[in-house]
Simulated scan of single mutants.
Amino acid sequence: MHWIDPNCLPEAKGTVERFVLNPHGEVDGFVMNGAMQAPVLVHTPPHMEPELVRHVRAGEAVSVRGVRPRKADLIAAVAITAANGAGIIDQGPQHEREHPKLEKKKMPAEGTVRLSLFGPKGELRGALLADGTVIRIGPKEAEQVAALLAPNAKIAVTGDGLDTEHGRVVHAKEIGASSHDLRPIKQAKPKLKHEAEAKHDRSAHA
């Protein structure tokens, strides 16, 4: 959202608890604790990672200017001011980005959900466990297992995992309430063009 003037947006302040990772092991946000409020997820696009990890540390105070989607407790950050005074602004990616080529391995995770994780528009994308593990699921697939991604839910997964300097992330392929109750996550089928057109025609003539 590099086209938005951050100075026109509301400001939220708090302390960084931990970074959050996307399925590729890139930092795409952090959990922020406020003195008078529950922890809130702050989303940042992956192209902000270099500046973010250079200036922001867990335990330090930050201020965030961003937008809040209607259906999630989330701030999609446009600008962040670090404790050292550095301003980190979403200027958009400067070139076509490639995901880091990190070696993934099959990895299990199990525990209690601390926070649901969302994309910048409020779409459910996974969960943060109490032990700090990040579980990621595609937005369409996440809708099918939303109850397991809710705060305080018990969850177990297996999938493609990474251990990085900023934490652990598992892109889930199987999910359940426990490791004895795992089932494959159904991949959402994209709608074919002719199916979408047929549905539109039926609606137009209803």
Rank of each mutant, 00 (worst) to 15 (best):
D5C: 06
L9V: 01
T15G: 00
T15Y: 07
N22A: 08
G25Q: 00
V27A: 05
G29D: 07
F30M: 13
V31A: 05
M32E: 04
A38I: 00
H43P: 02
T44F: 03
H47V: 07
H47R: 09
H47E: 10
P50T: 06
E51F: 09
G59P: 09
E60R: 13
S63F: 00
S63W: 01
R65P: 01
R65L: 03
G66I: 02
P69V: 03
R70A: 13
D73K: 13
L74G: 01
A76C: 14
A76K: 09
A76H: 10
A77Q: 08
V78S: 05
V78H: 07
T81R: 15
A82T: 04
A83F: 07
N84R: 01
A86H: 12
D90H: 05
D90K: 02
P93H: 09
E96W: 10
R97F: 07
H99G: 08
P100G: 10
K101T: 10
K101L: 14
L102R: 13
K106C: 01
K106N: 11
K106P: 08
M107H: 10
E110S: 15
E110D: 12
T112E: 14
T112N: 10
L115Y: 05
S116T: 11
S116I: 08
L117W: 07
G119I: 00
G119P: 03
L128Q: 06
L129I: 08
L129C: 01
D131P: 06
G132Q: 06
G132S: 02
I135W: 03
I137T: 04
E143N: 13
E143R: 14
Q144T: 15
V145A: 08
L148F: 05
A150T: 14
A150I: 02
G159N: 04
G161K: 11
D163E: 14
E165D: 14
V170F: 02
H171N: 14
A172D: 09
K173C: 03
I175R: 03
A177P: 04
S178Y: 09
D181K: 14
R183C: 06
I185W: 04
K189I: 07
P190H: 00
H194W: 15
A196R: 13
E197R: 15
R202M: 09
S203M: 13
H205I: 13
H205V: 11
